[in-house]
Design a protein around this nucleic acid. Structure first.
Length: 596
RNA sequence: GCCUCGGUAGCUCAGUUGGAUAGAGCAACUGCCUUCUAAGCAGUAGGUCAUGGGUUCGAAUCCCGUCCGGGGUACCA
């Protein structure tokens, strides 16, 4: 294929696609030109030297002259060392601006019959304690990657698997029975999940005290841990639960309901939602059946103590337990059941699990097990593995109370937004409701952007004090720039300044052209974010775009620009930046205030 | 021990799949509000890209070794 054809095709797609296109199909390296050089694309000529047998400059100049003569879109070129800088005609960038201006679907792919259906599992809480910072990262990543996949043309089903059964729930239940004095969310005014979490901590307190006492009486640590009255009581509750004991089931239901109500509030505050919620109590038996089928079909084996195992050494993995010797199921058992149930319920092409990287091994095994059980989709599961959130004080441990609670964090951030706004004298003209809504958007914008801007795969540091920052590379900065553009557009409308899409222009400044180029990159960035499962790519794009806009905004006047063609162009440019930024940020789950 | 991920400015993070003089923000310092919102802009200072080799025209990026850190590693989830 000729390079001429490639460049022509590339005018219909975007900048980076051209880049990939040429690199992948032709081994020719084209990259964006450095900012301090003139030009738009740069061709690296070093690879040609072995063919040309000439100096880098000579080779570059020859290629440049050839391209200039052959390709209409190329306006000029220059050669520096081994780099051929090509300048593309302004018309190309302006065409793209028109494409993007006020176009709801710019950069997005609309699902059709051929679209894949993807199920994204995220959040996956336990019902014995409230959500914390780690869950926040999970929820934000899960929600935004779902939205990004949708924007890339997939049908997405958002799902949540609630871990509503097991020994940890029984601990909270026992503690409530023993020390609860009939405390409920209604009579205490406490949020249900926090109330239940309180009893989980209460349990641990007593449990630890009992252990200490037993050790003092001469028992070993292991003996003490298995003989403490609290843990025995919790185990008994679990047995009763599995035996369907009516009182136990009722208590379990009641306390879980408290938790669900609490979670719903937190989810609502975070702005995340689900299309379908699964409960482990409804799926673990299916998993157990599948494992037993595996035993019958000799896929798995049973030891003398009747525990069930999978031998995965042929797959480079270890032996894995699937059912305990007492017949109860382990973590992976329920994941098998849940997976089967999901594929029965929906016609899924791909399953995505948003789960922390401490479970990389777990999902590697799950894929192999599902495959062995004959589910052809098993191998295709995708574990969207993200890093942990660390605090300056170290690791979060829920039992030691060193967690950052999700609700507390959100409330604190809203308060900071409120104070900051008052200090700056902003939003005084708005009604109380409007102002409160804006504080909420800003606070959550700060929190969400702070978490989503970092590469999901990496561990991240969260300093509660420093992260409530509204300046620099932050959500509020992007929101602020958006609000300012909206303000300019309002004023244009108030002063009856028309916006004409028929752009007439003889020259572009560097800043304007930078912005136009950046706008062109939006579709490619969105695609990249989807392919790489990285909301961070999109977040950083929004920041770069807005930062460039700010520089432009300070350097040039828009409304008071005397040349009407120029003014018209700048208005369209501004409006387009606003549209794209809003769209990008919305895909991250961040709302954009019209004023702030 | 083995497997796996990571180490970039004082701090938090980018770095376009191997390219030109490694970039932002925070913190520090200096300017700029009678002009479209100063939650902003411009500037100064800050780097042995953990470390030692290798691959080639060219390495923060790819390969090997070493050091440091996170996570996992057969009856927790």
């Amino acid at each position: 294929m000729k390079i001429e054809n490639l460049i022509h095709q590339a005018t219909e797609v975007a900048l980076k696609e051209l880049y990939n296109f040429i690199v992948e199909e032709n081994q020719i390296q084209i990259q964006n030109t450095r900012k301090d050089q003139t030009g738009d694309f740069t061709l690296v000529v070093f690879p040609f030297l072995r063919f040309s047998k000439k100096s880098a400059e000579e080779t570059g100049t020859e290629i440049g002259e050839y391209l200039l003569a052959k390709i209409r879109l190329i306006q000029s070129f220059n050669v520096i060392k081994g780099f051929l800088n090509l300048e593309i005609a302004n018309d190309y960038w302006l065409e793209n601006l028109k494409l993007a201006y006020n176009n709801e679907n710019f950069g997005t792919v609309i699902p059709d019959e051929k679209s894949k259906t993807v199920m994204v599992e995220y959040s996956s809480p336990n019902t014995n304690k409230p959500l914390h910072l780690g869950h926040i990262r999970n929820n934000l990543l899960g929600y935004s990657i779902s939205e990004i996949l949708k924007a890339n043309g997939s049908n997405v089903i958002k799902t949540n698997i609630v871990n509503d059964r097991g020994i940890h729930i029984c601990k909270s239940m026992y503690a409530w029975q023993k020390w609860g004095n009939g405390k409920t969310p209604e009579n205490s005014g406490m949020k249900g999940d926090h109330l239940v979490g309180e009893f989980y901590v209460e349990f641990d307190k007593h449990f630890k005290a009992e252990i200490a006492e037993l050790i003092e009486q001469g028992f070993s640590k292991e003996e003490a841990e298995s003989k403490a009255p609290s843990i025995l009581a919790a185990r008994e509750l679990l047995l009763k639960w599995e035996a369907n004991d009516e009182d136990t089931i009722n208590l379990w239901r009641t306390m879980n309901e408290w938790v669900y109500k609490g979670f719903d509030l937190t989810y609502k505050k975070l702005g995340v939602d689900f299309d379908k919620i699964y409960y482990e109590s409804e799926t673990y038996l299916i998993g157990k059946e599948e494992v037993l089928r595996g035993v019958r079909e000799k896929i798995f084996y049973q030891k003398d103590d009747s525990s069930v195992w999978a031998d995965l050494t042929d797959d480079g993995l270890d032996q894995k337990i699937l059912l305990r010797s007492d017949g109860t199921s382990v973590y992976i058992t329920q994941d098998i059941g849940t997976a089967k149930m999901r594929y029965n319920d929906f016609n899924i092409d791909k399953m995505v699990y948003v789960v922390g990287n401490e479970q990389n091994y777990h999902f590697q095994i799950l894929a192999v097990l599902l495959d062995k059980l004959g589910f052809k989709w098993g191998k295709d599961l995708y574990h969207f593995s993200y890093g942990m959130v660390e605090l300056p004080s170290g690791k979060m441990k829920s039992r030691e109370g060193t967690v950052v609670d999700a609700d507390d964090l959100i409330d604190e951030m809203i308060q900071v937004a409120r104070d900051m706004s008052a200090e700056l004298g902003k939003l005084e003209s708005l009604s109380k409701e409007e102002a409160e809504d804006t504080f909420r958007m800003i606070a959550l914008g700060a929190l969400k952007y702070f978490i989503l801007k970092v590469d999901p795969r990496k561990n991240m540091m969260f300093n509660p004090e420093e992260s409530i920052d509204f300046n620099g590379n932050t959500g509020p900065f992007i929101q602020y720039t958006y609000a300012r553009i909206k303000s300019v557009l309002r004023k244009a409308s108030d002063n009856n300044i028309p916006i004409d899409t028929n752009l007439k222009l003889n020259s572009l400044s560097t800043k304007e052209k930078d912005l136009l180029k950046r706008i062109t990159l939006f579709p490619v960035t969105l695609k990249e974010a989807g392919v790489n499962f990285s909301p961070a790519v999109l977040a950083n794009y929004c920041y770069e775009l807005v930062k460039e806009f700010n520089q432009f905004y300070h350097e040039y006047s828009i409304l008071s620009e005397p040349n009407t063609d120029q003014r018209n162009f700048r208005l369209i440019l501004s409006a387009t930046v606003a549209v794209i930024v809003k769209k990008g940020m919305n895909l991250l789950g961040i709302e954009m205030p019209e004023r702030m």
